[in-house]
Nucleic acid binder design. Structure first.
Length: 179
DNA sequence: CTATCGATTGTCT
DNA sequence: GACAATCGATAGA
């Protein structure tokens, strides 16, 4: 697992599509990711380590969790130092009822289709920042085969917005936005 | 379907 | 003091 993440974030982001991921038994299949590196003006790590982004400079295969717009939590997987992959959408498989309770919506497509939604559905908060993905409450299994991928521009950023660093599972109805 | 806008607060300059 | 790796509601085509 350590070796899988100790690589360029763009490479890892594509290969995470199709992986099975759970937090305390609640989760599903990763269908959308984005890559952020320290030479990328859109990345939190651009400009060096701060109190917030310190996990991005820690060991690979750990979680980087930050708060977005003052109210949403977003989950990343740390790759090489200063880089990470943002988990943007999951196909819900385990713990559907728990997700519905946490999210307050019934439609399965609205449970985990977006970084903030996904974090709320899986119970991800700042308490998990810096924790190893190889230990509880996390469970992660990389996809045995490479599924058909989509690639496009990242969502919701203003800097380096044209870079093709967003990846998705082709044909999935659980993407946060079309490619 | 697309477009726009307000909520809400930690973080960094 | 400005801004942000978002979301949900609402208005209009």
């Amino acid at each position: 697992m350590q070796a899988f993440f100790a690589r360029h974030a763009v490479e890892v982001a594509g290969e995470l599509i199709g992986a099975a991921f759970q937090v305390a038994g609640v989760g599903g299949v990763i269908v959308e990711t984005e890559a952020y590196t320290d030479d990328d003006a859109a990345s939190h790590s651009h400009g060096g380590m701060t109190q917030r982004n310190r996990a991005m400079f820690g060991p690979p295969a750990h979680a980087y969790v930050y708060r977005s717009y003052g109210l949403h939590w977003c989950l990343n997987f740390v790759c090489l130092p200063g880089s990470a992959v943002l988990i943007r959408a999951i196909m819900p498989v385990e713990g559907l009822e728990t997700m519905r309770l946490r999210r307050g919506v019934l439609d399965a497509r609205l449970l985990c289709s977006g970084p903030g939604r996904l974090s709320q559905a899986l119970g991800v908060t700042g308490a998990l920042d810096g924790l190893a993905l190889t230990q509880a409450p996390f469970s992660l299994a990389i996809a045995p085969t490479r599924p058909p991928l989509l690639c496009g521009r990242r969502i919701g950023i203003t800097k380096a917005a044209d870079l093709p660093r967003r990846f998705g599972l082709q044909g999935s109805p659980f993407l946060s936005k079309p490619f």
